[in-house]
């Protein structure tokens, strides 16, 4: 009897765990530009340099306009973690340096995938990130972050 309870608990745990893993694996973000952008792909290194303010141009040499998600959102924290390997606190410190030394303006902020798509499809040179499931014909995926 006791053994049965344990094994049932174990089974439940396995189900919960695999569900969690699925959710995590599904939460993959994609980097997007306008559907008609000449840029077709960026590497993780290029993306990292862009969003850490180290370069200001897209791989084709045109000016980049960075589109961020809302500060504190899971989308944003996940993105920086995957693209740059840095925590939200490190990113905040870094952009404080760039902003308050007069070196750069912080990225434009959009609230949610829909607004990112709106900015990306209307602002020349815009590059942003959204959930994979939010991709539509207005944007083009240039990198998938797993």
């Amino acid at each position: 009897m006791k053994i049965q309870i344990y094994s049932r608990t174990a089974a439940t745990l396995v189900v919960v765990c695999s569900a969690l893993l699925c959710t995590l694996a599904n939460a993959s973000e994609v980097v997007v530009v306008a559907a008609n952008s000449p840029v077709s792909a960026v590497t993780t290194d290029q993306l990292s340099q862009l969003f850490l303010g180290k370069v200001h141009t897209l791989p084709n040499g045109s000016s980049a306009v960075l589109i961020d998600q809302t500060e504190g959102s899971t989308a944003r924290d996940d993105f920086y973690s995957k693209a740059t390997g840095k925590s939200a606190a490190q990113i905040k410190a870094l952009w404080s340096r760039l902003t308050f030394s007069g070196a750069a303006q912080p990225p434009k902020s959009a609230s949610g995938d829909a607004e990112v798509k709106k900015f990306v499809s209307t602002i020349p040179g815009a590059i942003g990130y959204i959930d994979k499931t939010a991709v539509d014909s207005s944007v083009k995926v240039v990198l998938t972050l797993d």
């Binding site: 141009t57 045109s62 905040k92 870094l94 404080s96 308050f100 007069g102």
Partner: peptide, 26 residues
Amino acid sequence: PEYALRVGRMPLPVFLISDSRTVGFS
């Protein structure tokens, strides 16, 4: 895209973090 010109009063960038030496948070 790769070039910027600034005119006015700017931090003097002598050492690595001279331009942001006052920004303790950074």
